[in-house]
Design a protein around this nucleic acid. Structure first.
Lengths: 194, 194
DNA sequence: GCACCTCCGTAACGATCGTTACGGAGAGGC
DNA sequence: GCCTCTCCGTAACGATCGTTACGGAGGTGC
């Protein structure tokens, strides 16, 4: 169980720098300080290795969101912090966003990865919907779901763009864009507009 | 010049279905109905082939935005339509979004592709900023630029998410999310909020 | 102490990759 | 009619890929 974590960490490192294309079993083994024998023995195939690394990454981001959601804060601030936790605001999360983008692209051609992506994203949408509803007295779910779609897409896009052009998409700009969108979404959901 | 376009079209087709990983020179040749000899003769390397296909895709989306921007419409409607032109609302643009995502991920590890991506996106941001400013009397560029960042990220994220989970991210939801964001952005830039 | 079983490094297999070398087909000049 | 040059199909090279086979190391049961 510890070995699988180490191997997945190695997968993330390689994907972050070489992309999914360059993530060969040998490259991962070298990064992890072992041989392809261990990897094939534990996972059976490269595809299974990638799937496991993807799952673990999803668990990691989910745990982070859980922890932040448990912190004491106003509902609006909680929503903002959870969304900000998915933004590449430090070097660790920049690497994470790189890996995230690599796996997203790989999911286009790989059904197993796509299913993990879909599951994770739908859970993410439900979380956002719940947090949005908590910011006011609105009980109608539909507008909150629509707002969640917009916020999820915004965070997704900000992450990709920041990874590809960090000079243009600075940390302050990411936070500013997020704050504006959160404010607009909560205002709209809570009766700001029919 | 015509041959290069045909080969680039073949690249898009293969990337859309197999991802960048599966886009081998042989696969592109087979799709285009030629051999690797032609591709290597014209481009010299796989990397150059991908770069050319990426450039052509950028030109295509740019031309589409230009055409829509030239149509008669209110400034707000023009902004909305240009943004909507980047959304995967028909099967052709779904494939395009798949390719877009593939190239974005490849740009993480390929400096040449990253530079194209950055150039294209900065031009896109300038276009959005200009369109936003045209929706009102505001002359201060900074708020418009910030709004452009948010809208660009939203469209980028919607495209990725719709490609990976078209059942959840339906066309109506994409348009609804876009409309809400455009409305919020124009309202904010034009004095809706200090 | 012997058999057994798990774990993993080593080595190699076949497939596929990007790339190169070569040769033929066809057009144009003279 | 011949030379030349461009264009591109053919074939093969070396590298690298995912995967498999095998064997040794080390613990466990008896």
């Amino acid at each position: 169980m510890e070995t699988e974590r180490r191997l997945s960490q190695a997968v993330w490192d390689v994907v972050a720098t070489q992309g999914i294309e360059g993530t060969s079993v040998r490259a991962v083994a070298e990064r992890a300080g072992c041989t392809t024998g261990l990897i094939m023995h534990r996972f059976g195939s490269r595809a299974a290795l990638l799937v496991h690394a993807r799952r673990l990454m999803l668990e990691r981001t989910t745990a982070r969101a859980d922890a932040i959601e448990a912190e004491p804060a106003s509902p609006a601030e909680r929503l903002r912090r959870v969304l900000a936790s998915a933004l590449p605001l430090d070097t660790e999360r920049v690497d994470e966003a790189r890996v995230w983008l690599g796996f997203a692209a790989a999911a286009v051609a790989d059904p197993a990865l796509r299913e993990i992506q879909q599951d994770g994203n739908r859970t993410w949408l439900r979380r956002l919907t719940r947090l949005i509803l908590a910011t006011g007295e609105a009980v109608d779910e539909a507008p909150a779901e629509e707002a969640a779609v917009g916020l999820a897409a915004l965070v997704e896009g900000l992450g990709s763009l920041a990874v590809l052009d960090p000079h243009t998409y600075t940390g302050e700009r990411l936070e500013r864009a997020l704050d504006d969108a959160v404010q607009a979404a909560t205002w709209r959901v809570n009766g700001g507009k029919a």
